[in-house]
């Protein structure tokens, strides 16, 4: 923005810029600030970070107590590891389940392709909360699956599926599968069909052509889809809260409880900062460098 700037240009930028500064960046700065302050039984329940000392100078009180607390209490550590593990496994399951579907859509006739894409996208527009809730009726002890299996006589005791890690994996895969399929489809659809023919003409068997030509070329789609699944899955709250058991530790749920049940704002803030540093920042950097490479 050097020299004379057309005023229209500045007008376009300034609105969203100020909005994001105020309602996106400033809140994060406040979280950082409160993560370093002390919990108080007051409203708001934390000690101010800036205080005037007796001689009137402005002092900053950095309090690392909240972070030490996170490190000492292994609840948080286990919750981090558990969230990352559950999100990772669910992401891998999404790749395995989503790849054939994306592949099938990419190779369908144009008319069928539009219908299939619509079918994959449609659940995304219906309430996420209600779709997760639907699984309760299917998985619970007197739910759809157990009633069916018992009626057929395969089992005579209901299988306990609700409030297990299994239900959480199922919920995550179910909710985020479209986020894997769509970028994968977009990538696969761009690949030239003649690649198959070239490989076949050169005497390559279909499965080998797939493994050595198509799969490596589709990897950017796999990476893009994995980001879209892994990142929200790590911070997931609704799925473990509705489908998981009391021992399904996930960091989003810990933060929620810390805030709503324990009303400990500083520790909740410290958890948020730790999540940002440990999980979101590396992924953003990865995505950024990846995007740079793709642009080249």
């Amino acid at each position: 923005m050097s020299g004379r700037v057309p005023s229209g240009r500045a007008l376009v930028i300034v609105g969203p810029y100020l909005w994001l500064l105020l309602f996106f960046l400033a809140p994060l700065a406040i979280v950082l600030k409160i993560a370093f302050s002390e919990a108080l039984i007051a409203q708001p329940p934390y000690a101010p970070l800036f205080a005037r000392s007796s001689d009137g100078a402005l002092t900053i009180q950095l309090n690392f107590h909240n972070f030490l607390f996170l490190v000492r209490d292994d609840l948080y550590f286990r919750a981090y590891l558990n969230s990352a593990r559950i999100a990772l496994i669910a992401t891998l399951l999404c790749v395995v389940l989503g790849y054939p579907v994306a592949y099938g859509i990419a190779h369908a006739s144009p008319a069928a392709r539009n219908v299939l894409l619509m079918l994959v996208i449609l659940p995304f527009w219906t309430s996420f909360l209600l779709r997760v809730y639907a699984w309760i009726g299917i998985l619970k002890n007197n739910g759809l699956i157990n009633n069916l299996l018992m009626a057929v006589g395969i089992i005579d005791q209901p299988l306990v599926m609700m409030q297990t890690d299994f239900a959480v994996y199922l919920g995550i895969v179910y909710s985020y599968l479209p986020f894997m399929i769509l970028p994968l489809y977009a990538r696969l659809q761009r690949l030239d069909h003649t690649l198959w023919e070239a490989a076949a003409d050169l005497g390559c068997r279909p499965h080998k052509a797939f493994l050595t030509v198509i799969l490596p070329l589709s990897l950017p789609g796999v990476v893009a889809g994995s980001m879209l699944v892994f990142i929200p899955a790590v911070g997931e709250f609704v799925i473990p809260a509705l489908l998981g058991g009391p021992d399904t530790l996930m960091i989003g749920r810990v933060l929620w409880d810390e805030f709503f049940a324990n009303r400990d704002w500083p520790v909740a803030s410290a958890v948020a900062i730790a999540v940002l540093i440990l999980l979101v920042a590396p992924i953003t950097v990865l995505q950024f460098t990846h995007g740079r490479e793709a642009e080249r």
Binding site: P16, F23, F24, I30, V31, G235, L255, T284
Partner: peptide, 28 residues
């Protein structure tokens, strides 16, 4: 000027866990 920050701020809410967005806005 500030394009990198701007483009970061427009895409970051997409990857921000909702619990963190919620908490940070409440504190604001």
């Amino acid at each position: 000027r500030g394009r990198i920050l701007f483009s970061g701020m427009t895409s970051a809410p997409l990857v921000m866990p909702e619990v963190i967005t919620g908490l940070s806005l409440l504190l604001l």
